[in-house]
């Protein structure tokens, strides 16, 4: 799960043993290691992407959808392993196809969205675990799938993440007004000429890619936190839609930095530390009177 103590020469488990200064020196030294720099960068990119798309995801009530996408990754990885491919390469196309198929089902059936998503969520998890049982020598291990390993992020993963963040920012930036109108009132957006179906599909594809690319670092269980928590905290801090999006992306990135620092300082698992920081920020925002903060 990405505990950092493996990488340091003199592991120390509690800061009270040493002076605070020595602890900080240790953390600084730690972040001079390439794998830690990659992990930090990976966390920031994942946090920013999750926050950016998460801002629209929660308003369109797709939070559970992103959770389902995360859990379905287990199925994608299992299929990749069974077919003898690198699971990382299978995961991205699988996530996109899976997301589009789920969207198709949601649009074509008249069942309740959460009920249908629950069926897909639990059944994809079940099938994924059954398929994994045929590969009892899976090196990655189920724990890494569930919780991710941000310390194992490679340069290739970072390049993918940078490109994807650029695409997400470009897409949201260039279609911002249409995205807002579509989120507010779909018929009004259609009347204005917004291509709702194309915009919605593009958003779902990007969300699937973000989830797919982040699984390795964050894991199946925690990925939806990166999408949902910063956006919810940003909502409590925002009155303007544009501020809300920027704050959401910013909180995602900042949470990753603080989470990684705390993880290094206290020798905690990195992914869960970042999520714990996101939760801490969210709880803090609950204490702030919304009207006074970031008022235009």
């Amino acid at each position: 799960m990405g505990r950092i103590s493996f990488a340091i020469a003199t592991p120390v488990n509690f800061p009270t043993i040493m002076t605070i200064e020595a602890e900080f020196t240790r953390v600084i030294q730690l972040f001079q290691l390439p794998f830690m720099q990659r992990a930090l960068m990976g966390g920031v990119l994942t946090g920013a992407m999750g926050g950016l798309l998460g801002s629209f995801t929660i308003l369109r009530q797709l939070s559970f959808f992103s959770d389902v996408l995360g859990h379905s990754a287990l199925l994608g990885i299992s299929i990749g392993l069974l077919l003898g491919f690198n699971p990382s390469w299978v995961l991205l196309p699988f996530s996109v196809i899976f997301a589009l198929v789920v969207t198709y089902f949601l649009e074509r059936t008249h069942l309740w969205t959460d009920a249908l998503l629950n069926i897909i969520y639990s059944s994809s998890l079940a099938v994924g675990i059954i398929l994994l049982s045929f590969r009892d020598k899976y090196q990655g291990g189920i724990t890494h799938l569930l919780f991710g390993d941000i310390l194992a992020v490679q340069t290739t993963d970072l390049i993918f993440s940078v490109v994807l963040l650029g695409v997400c920012a470009g897409f949201i930036g260039l279609t911002l007004r249409s995205q807002i109108l579509l989120t507010l009132h779909e018929p009004m957006a259609i009347a204005r000429g917004v291509s709702v179906s194309a915009q919605r599909t593009a958003f779902i594809v990007l969300l699937a890619l973000v989830v797919g690319i982040s699984i390795k670092a964050i894991g199946v269980l925690l990925i939806s936190a990166f999408v949902v928590i910063p956006a919810c905290a940003a909502r409590l801090l925002s009155r303007k839609f544009t501020n809300y999006i920027l704050i959401s992306a910013g909180l995602g990135a900042v949470s990753a930095v603080i989470g990684m620092l705390l993880s290094a300082l206290f020798d905690l698992p990195s992914g869960p530390s970042i999520v714990a920081v996101q939760l801490g920020i969210f709880l803090l925002t609950l204490l702030i009177p919304t009207a006074r903060v970031l008022a235009p």
């Binding site: 308003l59 007004r177 807002i180 009155r239 303007k240 839609f241 501020n243």
Partner: peptide
């Protein structure tokens, strides 16, 4: 949904 009056009219 956090949107002000001027943002809505701007749309």
């Amino acid at each position: 949904i956090p949107i002000t009056v001027s943002e809505l009219v701007g749309l």
